[in-house]
Design a protein around this nucleic acid. Structure first.
Lengths: 201, 201
DNA sequence: ACTAATTTAGTCCAAATGTACTAATTAATT
DNA sequence: AATTAATTAGTACATTTGGACTAAATTAGT
């Protein structure tokens, strides 16, 4: 990709992160970059093309990370590191998480892709849970769909910890929230799992 | 309060809920109501005065509900009913939950009040947890601050289940999410607690 | 070096918004 | 009924925005 396109994406990301998508216009981005708005429009025909591009970047990074985790999540340590890394990526694109619904409302492509990603994430976690059960790190379901509920809780937590942190914390610490996500698993753990978990955290 | 003010608040709430705060202007609200925008401005000097009024309504309703729950949460059933009712109230003001961060960014009063409310909610849940431990419905902490983590998870879930549902579900069912919130407690429960819980749900 | 394609900038336009101000109307008070 | 206060409507203005269009400048290909 050309330098200017990369510049536009980076500047946009920075500005979206600081003020939110709704308050940043094409013209403001172009002013910030000291280029004409027509020039910017030449490269991206509107704000949502920029957002879609940034979203593709994010998806790419998350996808690679997921692959990495799936290959290496035999140990809890690696899983934790993976989640931490993932949360850092999300933080870098935080405007997307904060303006999630605003973007999704105006941008059907975005929404579709998010739903796709969510399916993948759910599958990944379901496999992880199965494997943790097999290895007797967590216990079996004690009623049906118990772990489906957990996966929804993981989804909401993963999607909105940044938003919540931005309101209630002075600064956003991805490691803290990665640990909190892990703690969702803790009460399901067997004695072995708990010991291992407490050793790490 | 005068009829027209009530009308403005209701119309605004309805429009904010359907399109989001960022996309609704004073002028649009006045057009929808078939009054002049100057008239609307006479009653509320800007959009954020409307939002603040609506927020006061919401706080009032939540406050009364909390009182009700604290007085009656001896039984799990009542707790569940309370959470369900609370979630229905939030759904009625859903724009506030969805545009949480957008509003908080531009409106310091809003943010302050939210943080206040959050403190109350945390205290309420902490008391609830203490009482559940005493009554041996849930177990004691197995490491320090274990239940503080749970409370943060409750906070994030309570604040963003609507946003998440709006993206992933076809329609938003508060009872479903109330149950999911309860399920956060389940793995901490003792045998007695689990039995009671499964009976109800 | 010349030409064509790509990239950048400049200008103009219509629509919408918040704000300020004035005029008209309605309600309340005496 | 007259006067005052409260409410509603209307108008005008400066800004901002996305979009369309044109012209200038730069780059790439030959």
């Amino acid at each position: 990709m050309k330098k200017i396109k990369i510049d536009i994406l980076n500047t946009s990301k920075r500005m979206f992160n600081s003020k939110g998508v709704a308050l940043i216009s094409i013209r403001e981005i172009s002013r910030e970059m000291r280029i004409s708005h027509s020039n910017l429009l030449y490269h991206f025909k509107d704000k949502y093309e920029i957002i879609n591009s940034l979203h593709e970047q994010l998806i790419e990074k998350v996808y690679e990370l997921n692959k990495e985790i799936e290959e290496n999540s035999n140990e809890l340590t690696r899983l934790i590191k993976g989640i931490e890394k993932g949360f850092e990526i999300l933080l870098d694109y935080r405007f997307m998480m904060i303006d999630f619904n605003f973007i999704a409302q105006e941008n059907k492509t975005f929404r579709k892709r998010i739903i796709e990603m969510e399916k993948e994430r759910a599958t990944m976690y379901m496999n992880l849970i199965k494997s943790l059960i097999q290895r007797k790190i967590i216990r079996k379901e004690s009623y049906s769909n118990e772990y489906d509920a957990l996966i929804i809780q993981i989804r909401i937590f993963s999607d909105y910890w940044i938003s919540s942190s931005q309101i209630y914390d002075d600064s956003t610490n991805p490691k803290k929230y990665a640990k909190l996500l892990l703690q969702l698993f803790y009460p399901y753990m067997t004695k072995t799992g708990k010991q291992e978990f407490l050793k790490i955290v």
